[in-house]
Structures are given as structure tokens and as C-alpha cells.
Amino acid sequence: MNIYLLTLYMFLLTFAIGFIVAFIIKISVRGVEFSQTIRDEKYHQEMRRLRSIKRIRHIKNTSILGKIEEASNNKMLNYYYSNYIRKRDNVTSNTANEIAEHQIEEASNSKLLNYYYGNRKRDNLTSNDTNEIIEH
């Protein structure tokens, strides 16, 4: 074989193998970068998911708190107005109980009055009794 052709052949072979080596290096670097990107993407996705859950919880909490506040305001309003407007439909059981207790207290006071009035005739009321009733 001609020496020049042989040299050229070996030169081209070296070039080809050299670039195959470079290609393998590049592919492996890209491969690792790609897998790293996928890992990073998964990590970011997970972080995004956790953040969104946190945000939703925060929003929910805020809205629940708002609703609770609103509800309590309503209850208070109802409580105060219940005796006059009787919006009993909007009143929760607790509030109802509270109102009931309030009414029971009122009723007891009335009973006390009745007691005083019931057991003693007005005419027989002493000045002490009158004072007691006035105080009450």
C-alpha cells in the first residue's frame, strides 16, 4: 500500500475515533445533565405542589376564619336582636342555648318577682320588701 494513502487512512481513522470519543463524552455529559434536569424538575414540581397546598390551606383557613367571624357576628347580632326580632332560624344551638339561658334567667327574675308578689299581697308589703324589689 502506498505510504501516503496508509498515512491518510490512519489519520482519518484517528479523526473518526477521536470524534467518536468526543461524541460519547458529549452524550454522557448531556445524559447526566438531562437526568439532573429531570431530577430538578421533579424537585421543583414537588416544591410547587407543597407550596400550593400550603397556600390553599392558608386561603381556606382565612375563609373559614372569616366565615366563623361572620357567623359569630351574626350570632351575636341574632342574640341581641333575638329577643326583639326573633330571627331564630339563623341561630345555632349554642346561641339558642345561650338565649335560652338568658330567657331562663329573665324568667327566674320574674318568678322571684311573682314569688314576692305571689306570696305577699301588695298591701302587706313592708318597706323592706319594696326596697328589695326595687333593688332587684
Binding site: 484517528t14 479523526f15 477521536g18 470524534f19 468526543a22 461524541f23 463524552i25 458529549k26 454522557s28 455529559v29
Partner: peptide
């Protein structure tokens, strides 16, 4: 690994 083509090209 940072510059495979460039490095191999110069070396060849």
C-alpha cells in the same frame, strides 16, 4: 468533559 469537541479537535 466541559468542551469535548474543542479539546479533541485541537488534540487531533
Amino acid at each position: 468533559l466541559q468542551r469535548p469537541y474543542l479539546s479533541i479537535f485541537l488534540a487531533l
